[in-house]
Design a protein around this nucleic acid. Structure first.
Lengths: 200, 200
DNA sequence: TGTACATCAGTGAACGCGCGTTCACTGATGTAC
DNA sequence: TGTACATCAGTGAACGCGCGTTCACTGATGTAC
């Protein structure tokens, strides 16, 4: 038994491991598959171990949702990077692609983040992470707004559109459409934002 | 003890009573408060009684979701009736008001219908009920479309907008905004649909 | 460098809980005659 | 109208299950001297 495989009484970074295990459980078994005991099992520790890191299932869920918002934000930013920043409409479309891609890859995590599950939303980890995604959504709307009020309206419009489309897509859950089909359907539906401003 | 209050061994219409009980449980305690045993308790029967009507919790959930879609459709239709049918944009706005009002009054039921919970969606009761709401959403989009494809796009646009707005509103769940505030915010955000058609 | 000790993360057994489900039963209802 | 009987909805006790949680414990880590 080498030093690297030597089993240690201490895990090292159980907190992160439990969050990762939770993301995996959500992916494999949906919302109801996420329990403290199962997360401990996947992380390879006894079922009593999580108590040292998470006081309750709601705390673990909140931490997982926070991690989810970071992945979510990264997914949007990744798509945004692929297009020219000089075309604001294309940037919005790219962000929406990232939004939809994340949801298709992590449907249960998406449900946890936005669904009816009780979370501790106000506290730092989750509050900060969802704040990052909120900032990204705000930034892509800046070119379409002239003041705080029009910014607020544009953000709400874009966010509602892409969030509604994504949620309805997940709710139908009939043998999942190809990712590209979903995105194509979304983009065909999308109004021409550049004309929105002049309509005011 | 009069005849009307005489307790009978038979309930009469336990199936409906369990669905009603379920709606009440969702309203009072959220998604996780809905169990077969609690529904039986609220309906005033022993916890083994539901087995004669629902083979599993998923079946009860599906029946409750079906009932929810009927209430949901009625809520939209109720608001539509209040406005002039000769103004299609106003009809769409009215339907959206019904959509939002339903969700505010029944947040957990809304989550059950559209969230990550597994339901038996294909079978008659739920399939038919959600079909009614789908029809209503289609009908309000008819005046804005010239063919099947533009109808599909308009329906997806309206539906995504109102569904996304509603879901995000519920997800924030910070001391609930006044109903009127939510609807006002939605209507301010809403683009002018009458101009959409000409933009194609 | 070595030793003593405090800290703390993980163990494994045990607890009570609410859950869905099964089962023999009971009593009301509805029908055949 | 009355009687016998089949049907079926609801009862209440019992079952096993996975869950969160508690607890005394153990062993690794890190620090003081």
């Amino acid at each position: 038994m080498t030093a690297s495989t030597k089993p240690s009484h201490h895990h090292g970074n159980l907190r992160s491991a439990l969050i990762e295990a939770g993301v995996q459980l959500l992916r494999e078994g949906g919302l109801e598959a996420l329990t403290l005991r199962k997360a401990a099992g996947v992380a390879g520790v006894s079922h009593a171990a999580p108590a040292h890191h998470f006081a309750s299932l709601t705390n673990l869920r909140s931490a997982i949702a926070a991690a989810g918002f970071e992945i979510f934000d990264a997914s949007m930013k990744c798509e945004i990077k692929k297009v020219s920043p000089s075309n604001p409409s294309e940037v919005v479309r790219a962000a929406c692609r990232g939004y939809i891609l994340f949801a298709i890859e992590n449907p249960a995590l998406f449900s946890l983040m936005f669904g009816g599950t009780e979370l501790i939303r106000e506290e730092p980890p989750l509050g900060a992470s969802s704040g990052h995604a909120y900032e990204t959504l705000t930034n892509i709307c800046l070119p379409f707004s002239t003041d705080a009020k029009s910014l607020e309206k544009m953000r709400m419009l874009v966010w509602s559109l892409v969030h509604g489309f994504t949620s309805l897509m997940l709710a139908q859950q009939k043998n999942f459409p190809l990712v590209d089909d979903a995105i194509q359907q979304f983009e065909e539906m999308l109004p021409d934002f550049s004309k929105f401003q002049s309509m005011e």
